[in-house]
Design a protein around this nucleic acid. Structure first.
Length: 150
DNA sequence: GCCAACGTTGGC
DNA sequence: GCCAACGTTGGC
């Protein structure tokens, strides 16, 4: 089983929203590198850290499980959606998503600041300069460290 | 709101 | 295929 980190702006969709919904399609991916990873590398049963980005206290807030194969993101065909993509062909959809299931909410936010300062996380992608991918892999070691902090 | 980083677009 | 312009991400 592999581990991931998945970012969401809590103003758009937070860990509390996922706890309430249980299972949710993780839509809005509009980056080819990320799309390729969720299509080709991610597996049903993988687990992911839920990360709050672009907010007052950015950080890891909980965990979830990947519970579906990749399938077309319906928001790409919805002209009223902010993720609408007029160039995506319905016969060959450009953007995919997977369903995720709530597993846990941390007692507290493990902040970006802590993650940056923690020994053993020097290679963590979140801490790398220019990191902008909304989903990326997390190693077993990194996963254990972060859950240990929660 | 600012800005660095980097992806995408489109003219040539 | 190059590259300038533009858009987006995301921390601060």
């Amino acid at each position: 089983m592999a581990y991931w980190l998945m970012k969401s702006e809590p103003g758009e969709y937070s860990i509390d929203d996922l706890e309430r919904d249980g299972v949710e399609p993780w839509d809005g991916i509009r980056n080819y590198q990320v799309r390729n990873m969720i299509r080709d590398t991610m597996q049903v049963g993988d687990q992911a850290i839920f990360y709050h980005s672009s907010c007052k206290v950015p950080g890891a807030v909980g965990t979830m499980e990947i519970v579906s194969e990749a399938y077309p993101d319906p928001t790409q065909f919805d002209a009223n959606d902010k993720h609408f993509d007029a160039k995506s062909d319905p016969e060959n959809p450009r953007w995919l998503l997977r369903d995720v299931k709530f597993l846990s909410k941390f007692e507290r936010t493990v902040t970006l600041k802590e993650l940056k300062a923690h020994p053993g996380l020097e290679d963590f992608q979140l801490n790398k300069r220019g990191n902008r991918l909304s989903i990326f892999p997390v190693s077993d070691k990194q996963w254990k460290i972060i859950l240990g902090l929660a």
